[in-house]
Design a protein around this nucleic acid. Structure first.
Lengths: 343, 343
DNA sequence: CTGAAAGCGCTTACAG
DNA sequence: CTGAAAGCGCTTACAG
């Protein structure tokens, strides 16, 4: 059914090689030949067969971005950044969702289902440090996000502990002293949950303050609903409220804000709240939410670069995995600094 | 570098065909042979070469979902629905973003850059009715979303006019009479903007009310920022406020709500607001936003079915394009019905 | 600058 | 139940 280069070659009265040269814009094609071939290309409606090209060259011009799911806005934003930067470089993107399951992530890493693309960028949340093994030649892998392992795989993310310390210090600078941690501390030693927990503790330490007691750790899933429930439970318990809250991500922070608002607690006057991830909703919440903003663009660019680097390196057994940090910023909004003149 | 079936065959002392049979779980492989081959498969670490398989069979097991971008939550949710349902069926999904540009959409439709997958599901917003042409054999296409063309391509969406009438009627039922339209009426005759504009007019007509005057059409981009700006401009103008607002999508509605809240206008007491798309933020806004909720799951399932149908039909020149509607519901929340006992 | 030919790694009639 | 072989549509040394 499809028109092949052979068909075009016959139609134009040249060899298949010449058709290939024209299609791929190779230099040194005589103008007359080129014109003739292009006419045939158009006349027959030729479309390149990507599978054949890929089989021959071993390259697809496509990379895979794997995230837990698009439902969580942070991951959608991350995927968006990768897609935008890849597209700009002429690379297409296959999106896989893992549901955050270790099994699904491992299957992708070792290519069990077949390697469809030139490389894999994965926001891994389910695998454990021991699961990593050196990527096989021809199957470059870059992990992105918040883990901080010293594993076998390249990794790019933001410095979680440092970013957390900065966020908590911001609350200290505002004069808050009883700064709570909102979220669940779970997962592996190097999970973002544990890293942020440690950052919170370190902030007290570095500020020369006594370590926060357990009553300042508000346990909660990292979801909006859980955040709202946590706020309601806290208020129902009637205990003294913290005057500052560092939330492990924006979703739980937004839910918490809503729970406070419904009970008439004033933010930031009574409680100042800062989150993590800087998802888009945070700009639009009422009050708008301060947050730690990782540079997703920088993460995407760096991940794509590392992928290209691994491809170029080929089966280089000496290559050490690159573990890199990119920048973050503190987005200060109403939930900590109140309504500012510029709104 | 990679291990081929030939390598495995040599290692196991069988023919390549037998290896293929084992890998593809073909029936009628002698148990002893299977065991032998499986041992070699494991020993050598065989991974199927997807490109070769695709070249041979012409199928990839992958479909493309094309949307304007992941930044707009509605499209992310749509892509998520397609990915979830495709994955459940063992199909992988290539995500392309078009930026809503007609050029990018056309390039995908006619496969100019090469057809990478078994089919294309596209949320098209840039192409015009005349741009559609019958899909080429072997390149199935399904359009999804809000257009309502009688074009050459299969289409699945929700009945925009009917859904809009239902939303406006809901406001009438609440006793509102000055029900404004918020959003810009632009694009082709069958664009969702024009369809929703018509639905708004029809609602007045069917309710036996006089047609709304132009002062009830609040022109605005379909974005959050624009919605907020529109609310502020309206209040600054000092004109009489509408008592109900049908917004063309949730984003502009949410921005509008924020603008009202900042000025102390009470929702829904002073103004009741309903949006369109039912994006996730709407559940979490304060007040939460009522909205027309298309069934994204139904859209995804139906689109995938139509793709499969086109594949099965093959080059059937008699096949008529299928243009189908799926269900919608009205999600009633605080912005129209106020805070209810169950929160 | 162009042609004839090999081969990427599979699947699948065709035999036996 | 298994083998020997063709061929999917390309790219790319090898010649000329």
């Amino acid at each position: 059914v499809a028109v092949s280069m052979t068909d075009v070659a016959r139609h134009a009265g040249v060899s298949q090689r010449t058709v290939s040269n024209v299609v791929n814009n190779a230099a040194h094609v005589a103008p007359a030949t080129r014109a003739k071939v292009e006419a045939s290309l158009d006349a027959l409606g030729y479309r390149p067969n990507v599978a054949a090209r890929q089989l021959r060259t071993g390259r697809t011009g496509t990379v895979t971005i794997a995230i837990p799911g698009l439902g969580e806005r942070y991951f959608a934003d991350l995927a968006d950044a990768v897609i935008r930067h890849a597209t700009a470089a002429g690379i297409r993107v296959l999106l896989e969702t893992t549901g955050g399951s270790r099994e699904a992530e491992l299957a992708l890493i070792d290519g069990r289902a077949g390697v469809l693309t030139d490389g894999l960028i994965m926001s891994a949340v389910g695998i454990r440090p021991g699961d990593e093994r050196p990527p096989e030649p021809g199957h470059p892998i870059v992990l992105v996000g918040d883990r901080e392992t010293r594993g076998w795989l390249d990794h790019v993310g933001i410095p979680n502990r440092r970013a957390t310390r900065a966020a908590v210090q911001h609350l200290f600078d505002l004069g808050r002293t009883r700064v709570a941690l909102l979220g669940r501390v779970a997962g592996q030693a190097e999970s973002s949950g544990r890293l942020r927990h440690r950052g919170w503790l370190e902030a007290f330490e570095r500020a020369g303050r006594p370590a926060p007691g357990p009553e300042l750790h508000i346990d909660s899933d990292w979801t909006r609903q859980a955040g709202q429930d946590a706020a309601e439970a806290l208020l129902a318990a009637g205990a003294e409220l913290p005057d500052g809250v560092f939330a492990m991500n924006d979703s739980v922070a937004l839910g918490f804000l809503r729970g406070l608002a419904r009970a008439g607690v004033r933010v930031p006057e009574d409680v100042a709240v800062i989150g993590f991830d800087d998802i888009e909703e945070s700009r639009w919440a009422n009050p708008s939410l301060s947050s730690v903003a990782p540079s997703l663009d920088a993460i995407a660019v760096r991940a794509l670069e590392l992928l290209a680097e691994q491809q170029a390196a080929g089966p280089d057994l000496e290559r050490q995995p690159h573990q890199q940090h990119v920048d973050f910023t503190l987005q200060l909004r109403e939930s900590t600094v109140g309504r500012t003149p510029q709104g």
